[in-house]
């Protein structure tokens, strides 16, 4: 029997998430785990944009900023519960992505990269400079979401880091499930057609601009929810969540792991989230090694880590 792509992905991902804590020597690792899942969620969105539709964005952390600050601001100013604020934040991100995406997505390649980078920096600047609203560079605190108390009320009593490990895992799995549904659906095929050949996509009736915009909006929602998760977990936000380095990190994780595959991109997120922790042993050479590893992977495994490794394994089987 042949497994569908979706089933295979979930069959790898879920056991890994469930079994990993067995090997955690301390609670700190739960924290790293939730960080991987949050990055994993954002890069799953990036796979839809980069891997399916073949478009680039260096500004998606801007949407994470909107998601994060929605959770911080809406409960204080409008009395909206933090979780509902996360949902509203995703809606705002979607609307903004739709507005920004319409003019921006006419651009291609590095023009698109620079334009999206500009958008991300714009959001970051607003969050940093509008001190009266956002607290400026020092950030602001986020009200307790009450999720952990609710879990406790139904008998699930976990330490904070453990609780958020599982919360982020659940959100990631839902995100992956949606992305995998999309991949093999009519919309997913239209997106991949746009990636393969815009001219041919048009001749089979694909409204190219509309589908690019859809991919942009969906990936913005993923980034926004990832930003909200950061805010809800830390109960504190700074403009750093929208920093352009995060946007670049997400693109790097996606491409390094394998832009065409959700599992590959999450693998990339896991590697680039944990590697800096591992490389701290090399002190001042940490950044140097990180850069070197990234360069070597791209030179020798152009399709990304996971697809290249899988091909090598399959090649030996035959």
């Amino acid at each position: 029997m042949r497994l569908s792509h979706k089933t295979a992905t979930l069959l790898v991902l879920i056991p890994l998430i469930v079994l990993a804590p067995i090997f955690f020597p301390s609670n700190f690792y739960y924290r790293v785990g939730s960080l991987i899942f949050i990055n994993g969620l954002a890069v799953t969105g990036m796979v839809i944009l980069i891997g399916y539709a073949g478009q680039i964005s260096l500004g998606h952390a801007g949407f994470a900023g909107i998601g994060a600050y929605s959770c911080a601001l809406m409960p204080v100013h409008w009395g909206i519960p933090p979780v509902a604020a996360a949902v509203l934040g995703a809606v705002i991100s979607a609307l903004l992505a739709w507005l920004v995406g319409r003019p921006i997505l006419r651009l291609k390649g590095y023009y698109l990269a620079v334009a999206t980078l500009g958008f991300g920096i714009l959001v970051y600047m607003v969050l940093t400079n509008e001190t009266w609203l956002t607290g400026g560079p020092d950030g602001m605190s986020v009200n307790d979401s009450g999720l952990r108390d609710m879990a406790e009320a139904v008998g699930i009593d976990l330490k904070n880091s453990q609780f958020w490990y599982w919360m982020c895992a659940i959100v990631l799995v839902i995100g992956v499930w949606l992305a995998m549904n999309l991949q093999d659906s009519p919309t997913g095929r239209a997106l991949r057609a746009v990636h393969g050949s815009e001219v041919a996509a048009r001749t089979v009736g694909v409204d190219v601009a509309r589908y690019k915009l859809q991919a942009f909006v969906i990936s913005a929602v993923y980034a926004s929810v990832a930003g909200s998760m950061v805010a809800l977990q830390n109960e504190f936000v700074t403009p750093d969540v929208a920093g352009y380095m995060h946007s670049i990190e997400w693109v790097t994780m996606t491409v390094l792991g394998g832009a065409g595959s959700v599992l590959g991109a999450i693998f990339g997120a896991a590697i680039l989230t944990t590697l800096p922790q591992v490389l701290t042993a090399f002190a001042e050479y940490e950044q140097l090694l990180l850069g070197l590893i990234m360069m070597l992977v791209m030179i020798f495994m152009r399709d990304g880590l996971l697809p290249s490794i899988m091909r090598r394994i399959r090649g030996k089987d035959e």
Binding site: A193, H195, G196, S197, V199, A200, T203
Partner: peptide, 10 residues
């Protein structure tokens, strides 16, 4: 198309 426009990624 004369110069083939196939979706190579599919």
């Amino acid at each position: 198309f004369q110069n083939l426009q196939i979706f190579q990624n599919m």
